[in-house]
Amino acid sequence: MKHRFGYCSIAVFVVGLAVPVAGHTRDLYEDARMAMVEEIEADVRQTSLALDKEALDPRVMDAMASVPRHRLVPDELLDVAYENRPLPIGHGQTISQPYIVAIMTDLLNITPASRVLEVGTGSGYQAAILAELAEQVYTIEIIEPLGMLARDNLEKLGYDNIEVRIGDGYHGWQEHAPFDAIVVTAAASHIPPPLIGQLKAGGRMIIPVGSRFMVQQLVLVAKDTEGNVTTRQILPVRFVPLTGSH
């Protein structure tokens, strides 16, 4: 249901205008969400060196401005839902910092025709962002109660282009392969080789690694048209261990 929230800033603007006029059902969290988007933009500018760009794809930022993050976090976290920080969502799992979600999504180069696989649904927030941009999102969660909750919440939000499966994501989702993009949010001791196999030539895979509550290092796996695989490691902080050339 990617159209519900619109792609572009015009739609956001229209919704923003229309709701106050109607005088009710205004998304109370919209201001917070917009502030979050601005914060992400500022963070991206500050870390442009590590990211190799000054700003993220406007479509990604629109998605960030659209998805109601507060509808995908536990009730006790409603107040902090739009803070630019990772949040604990129970079951020892976390919902990533919005800034990291935005960068990961941006790195995947998703088009409206993309088929995307996500391993580790968690709260469903990343899947919702992806669903704003892609044709279809397949997402797998191994922790049953989390997967059920995410499926339920995503349905309530009206996303009809997300399919949630409870199970082991190691072998990907063969019947829907290959994928234009894959997100692996569940940390593993290695990248599951079947996922590399299900990545389309020219496709990209992104994996956040490291502490869940800090800025995470991102591993971008790219498969070129000949099937050669390279990885790029990105630490999205404004910290250069060795400045200048050596």
């Binding site: 191994i142 082991d168 593993a188 001791s189 080789p193 796996v221 695989v229 990885t231």
Partner: peptide
């Protein structure tokens, strides 16, 4: 149910 699969740093080509 789910194999544990601990293989630190396994090659992408494995």
């Amino acid at each position: 149910a789910t194999p544990l699969r601990h293989a630190p740093g396994l090659s992408l080509f494995a």
